[in-house]
Every structure is written in structure tokens, then in C-alpha cells.
Design a protein around this nucleic acid. Structure first.
Lengths: 337, 337
DNA sequence: TTGAAAGCGCTAACAT
DNA sequence: ATGTTAGCGCTTTCAA
């Protein structure tokens, strides 16, 4: 291991000078800076992370807690995680990956060990057990998702209520009168992950406002679940012509099922998906969708915790406005024959 | 922050004693141990990670380098990452997440900064740029995947050649004579990620040995790509009755396309998937498949790097034997009419 | 079975 | 603009 002291010797300066060249915390003459930088490069020096953390009381690490669950759409989580990691690097930070397996005590461990100087929590539940600890330790943190009481917390999420409203509006605008929301797996609702319920609330509200009759059904993963849910909806309300789907894994099954049942998209029924853009683009037909801005959510979360670590107050909600992109899967409601 | 010194004072012992109680590196009287442990619990003490890393020259962190690519099946990556994280915790280690965005230099940074005491690399290419650095730094490391020259490296992977052979054998056993391998996206082959080519090699070898005529086609993501690939195969070889599919995202599209083209599975054509079990189970019909043992790969990788960090020599390949599970998608070849 | 004390490599006052 | 130096909290000899 190359140490700072070795660099100092090699460059013919004092250790502190090397430190200051690296941190830029005081002005250095052009000449010394160059000599030091050359020595660093020549020796292949990298500061020892532990020593730095010990001396500076900052670890330059962000802890990211991801869920273990299997009922969430994994690619979105991954995209957020990657956005967090690449954004963190821009702030010279690394990301420590924690799973919820360890439970709420992970929050204590991280806060207590100086392993990370900020945390980002994903898949936040309405009454999340980690939140009291977060409040108590006062650690810099951002949540991706919305708990029941976000007071004093920093949260980032898509505005799912507006998303539900937007989708309902789009279908109403196209003249649909009977619509259905095909949602996430039942387990998601049962554990009160906020996003599913918020979408439903927004959807209901706007469907009512626009005089639509609507139905809501959770939907599990897999072909079985998807086609079952769909056929039960169609049995109950055969004249349903508009579907909002908030379940990425069910989408291909749903589409193939609609085709099989002789309903053409978008001539007979319209489909609005709530999903990442690439899923919408890779479906046939390409889906009208409200996109999940995974990258931006990750980026924002990092920016917020970095601002906190720099001493700023950031508490409050960052609700990203939904955008609906019209593609091939939605069209005017069929004339009543 | 609670420090070890505070714990020592609280328990009425010396700092070193507290340290030894924690590490278990020397025997402590029942009495002292209990007092110290109570103090630790009472004060909510957690060792400072940086200080510990500095003093012990071990960070208790494993670095995990994941790819940024979008052409891999994300859930498998995620499952491996999670298995690595939970297994690491069993060794009292945490996981640092790095993306390949930073490039090969990330290897240098990690090795040089003491940030991690071992690394696990995913999505290894045949001529991976990170490998020379790995050899050069001599860092404890495990690769998930197989490079062209694994000499001196520790690698974990599914035995994809055996997988290809196994799939070909299964179809041959069922009497199929014309078969096709629908593979990963072309980009995967182009960049010479080993697994796709190894599957193909095994498949070819055994198909030849069993006297099958075979075809191989890469297949992109999305409905468009999947149905295009399938119809081109059927155009070229209309009597193809056996398919091996190594492309999780294409599977639902392929199945719905087969149905649409009037081919029943498994009566008219058989499908063998190479995919995680849950994907096989959530398809309709449930798929005969060779499973991707994501969890085991992650677990093994951690065990191997931990053994290395403990000074053992582990270099060599760990190729997990494939298992084929017969489900509903494969059956006897139809009689030639 | 326990204590005392010397660092680990860095940062950040405090000097000049 | 640069150097000196006192820790940061822990591990681990060396001593008892």
C-alpha cells in the first residue's frame, strides 16, 4: 500500500501538503501541486478509505437498503440502484448495499459504525419500522417511496396519485365509459406499500369526476394470474373498454390474453400501462404509458442526501410529475353498436 | 458515537479487553465477558468501521462489480447480488456496489484504497479488461462467468456447455429431429460474453452427436424481435419441432407467437427454456427448463473469496452442474403425417 | 486472565 | 504558501 507519507517524501513536501492538494482545502502553488500530482500518479497512490473516514469523520459512502421481496418489478429497482451508484460517484461516494433481511437494526448498525454518512431506503412501507430509528438517529437519509407520515423526512417518488388521475383522464378523453385498473400483486396492497394505493386513489377520484364506472383488481405475477384476473373482469363487466395496468410482469400475458379473446388493441380496448419506457416500447402494440422515472428518482435521492450531508435542510417531499406518452395501445372508445 | 473506550470505562476494564471480547481472539473470564457485553448492549456500541479497517488492515467489505448493460436478464443479476449480500453478512461482511461504468480502474481504486478486501466481478467477458489488473494486484477475487483464460483465477458459473448438451439430449430423447436454439441478443454474442457461446457449443456438439439437424439464432428483447426470430426460423425450417430458448425476456412473446401460429405446446412443438425456475413456473404452459442457480452462484462466490481472504488458495473453476426439470412444455415429437 | 501503549494513514487545527 | 503535530478509534504486540 502506498501511503500519503510516501507520496510526501517522493514529492519533497510535507504530508499535510499532499492532503491539501488532494482535498483542495487550501491554496497550493502551481509548482508544488504539479509535483505532488505527479508523485501520486507515479506511485499509484490511493488514499486509505478507513484512515480517511477515521480522521475526517466522513466515510464517503452512501448506504442503500433494498428490499428482498420478489413481488416488486426488479428491473426498476435495479435501474434506481444503478442511477444511485453512478450519481454517487459524481460526489466521490461509493454505495454500500444492504438488504432488508437484516431488518431495522441495519439502520442502527450503519449509523453507529460510521460505515456510511447517508442512507437511501427503497420500498418504503406506510408504517415502516426503519423510520423511527431514522428519526431517532437523525442520520442523513432519503426515502424512495412515501410513508404514512413523512414529517421531517426527505422523500422522493413518482406522484402516483397524479398518475392514476392522468390515466383515468386519458381514457375518459378517448370516450371510454367503463374502465378497470389492473394493479400490483395483492401482497403489495396488503403490506401497504404506498404507491399502489396512491395510484388507486387518484384513479378512483378522477374516474368518478369524469363519470366513468370503474373496477379495480390486484393481479399476481405469471400467466395464470394475469389471464384469470382479466377474464374475471370481463365476465363481471363485459363492456369494459379501457384498462390501466400497473403491473409490468403481467403486461405481456395480459396483451396476449386480450388478443386470444378476440379483442383488438386499440380498436376494441385501450390499454394504458404504468411502467418504464423500455417495457412500453418492447410490447406489441407499443404501449401508451405513464413512465416510471427510475433514473431520476435515484439521481434525486443522491442529490438530496448529499445536500443533507453538507448541512442543508432538505426535508419534504419530492413528487415527480407523471408524463403520459401516447403510443399505439390507446384509441377512441368503440362506438356502441 | 459510542467508542470502545467508553465501553471499557463503563465496564471497568481496559480497552484491549473490550476489543478481545468482541474479536474472541483471547480467552476472557466469564465474568468480564458478561460485564463487557452488557455495557456494549446498554450503550448501543458499534465498532467504528474506519478505525477498525485502519488498525486491522481489513475492511470487512466485499466489492461487487455489476454491469450497466441492459441486454442481460436483470432479475438474475439481482438475485445473485442479493445472495452475495446476504451470504456476506454471514461472514460479517458488507457489500460495496460498483458499476462497470467506472471501468477497469475501479479495480485499482478498490485494491489501492483498502475499501474492500475482496472483489466479485459479474458479467465477465472472454477478454475482460479487469483481469490483468486483478492478476497484477493479486487481490482476493472471484468471477461470476468464465473468461477465455481463467488460469490462476477463481471462477463460478453454471456449466453452460453441459446445459446446451442436456437440452439437446432431452429433445433428442423425445424423438425430435429438427431443433433450434433461440439465444440471447446479438450484442451478447458480439461482446463475447462466454455463457451464450458455451451453451451454443454444447448444444451443437450434442445435436450433432444425436443426429439432429439444428439451427441457432440470436434474439433481441421485445415482442417484435421475438416473433421475427421465430417466424424466420419456421420459414427456413418449417418442420422444426424442438426449441431451446436462452432468453428470458423473449419467452412470453415466443409462447404467445407459437400459440398464434397454431402450434400447440407441447403437442406440436416442445420448448426447453434456460431460465430461473420462477420464470419457468409462471409461464403457460409451465416450462421444461434448465434452471439458472443464481443463489448458489452468489453464495459460492462469497465463500470462495472469504476462503482466499483467509489465506487459502482457491483458484480454479467452480462449474455448477445443470439440472433439467421436465414440466409441461416438452413432449414426444409429433408423428410425421 | 488482563493492562498499557504503540501505531495504522489520514485530516485539520495551529504555526510560521 | 507550507510545515508540524495532535488526534480519530481501533487492533495487537509486549508485559505482567
Amino acid at each position: 500500500m502506498v501511503t500519503l507519507a510516501q507520496v510526501a517524501r517522493h514529492a519533497g513536501v510535507s504530508p499535510s501538503t499532499v492532503s491539501y492538494v488532494i482535498s483542495g482545502k487550501r491554496s497550493i502553488s502551481q509548482d508544488t501541486r504539479l509535483r505532488v500530482e505527479r508523485s501520486i500518479a507515479e506511485l499509484g497512490y490511493h488514499p486509505h478509505a478507513g484512515a480517511r473516514a477515521l480522521a475526517s469523520n466522513r466515510s464517503n459512502v452512501i448506504a442503500l437498503m433494498i428490499p428482498l421481496r420478489t413481488d416488486m418489478f426488479v428491473p426498476v429497482m435495479m435501474e434506481i440502484a444503478i442511477a444511485i451508484t453512478t450519481t454517487a460517484r459524481r460526489y466521490a461516494h461509493d454505495v454500500l448495499l444492504l438488504t432488508s433481511e437484516e431488518g431495522p437494526s441495519a439502520v442502527k448498525r450503519i449509523a453507529g459504525s460510521g460505515l456510511a454518512d447517508a442512507m437511501i431506503l427503497m420500498d418504503v412501507e406506510l408504517e415502516d419500522e426503519r423510520i423511527p430509528l431514522l428519526r431517532q438517529t437523525g442520520a442523513a437519509a432519503a426515502l424512495i417511496g412515501l410513508p404514512a407520515d413523512p414529517t421531517g423526512l426527505t422523500c422522493v417518488d413518482l406522484d402516483f396519485e397524479a398518475t392514476g388521475r392522468l390515466a383515468a383522464d386519458h381514457l375518459a378523453d378517448l370516450g371510454h365509459r367503463e374502465v378497470a385498473l389492473i394493479g400490483a400483486a395483492e401482497s403489495v396492497y396488503r403490506r401497504h406499500t404506498g404507491f399502489a394505493e396512491r395510484t388507486l386513489a387518484g384513479f378512483r377520484q378522477q374516474a368518478s369526476a369524469r363519470g366513468l364506472s370503474y373496477l379495480h383488481r390486484p393481479c399476481g405475477n405469471g400467466h395464470e394470474a394475469a389471464s384469470g384476473t382479466l377474464s374475471r373482469i370481463l365476465e363481471e363487466r363485459p363492456h369494459t373498454t379501457g384498462f390501466v395496468v400497473q403491473n409490468e410482469t403481467a403486461l405481456p400475458h395480459l396483451l396476449s390474453q386480450l388478443r386470444q379473446s378476440g379483442r383488438a388493441v386499440p380498436e376494441d380496448v385501450s390499454v394504458v400501462a404504468i411502467c418504464p419506457d423500455d417495457v412500453a416500447l418492447h410490447s406489441a402494440p407499443q404501449l401508451t404509458s405513464v413512465s416510471i422515472p427510475a433514473q431520476e428518482m435515484g439521481r434525486r435521492a443522491v442529490e438530496l442526501v448529499m445536500a443533507q450531508a453538507a448541512g442543508q435542510q432538505t426535508s419534504g417531499l419530492t413528487l415527480l410529475g407523471p408524463t403520459l406518452t401516447v403510443r399505439e395501445s390507446s384509441g377512441p372508445a368503440p362506438q356502441i353498436s
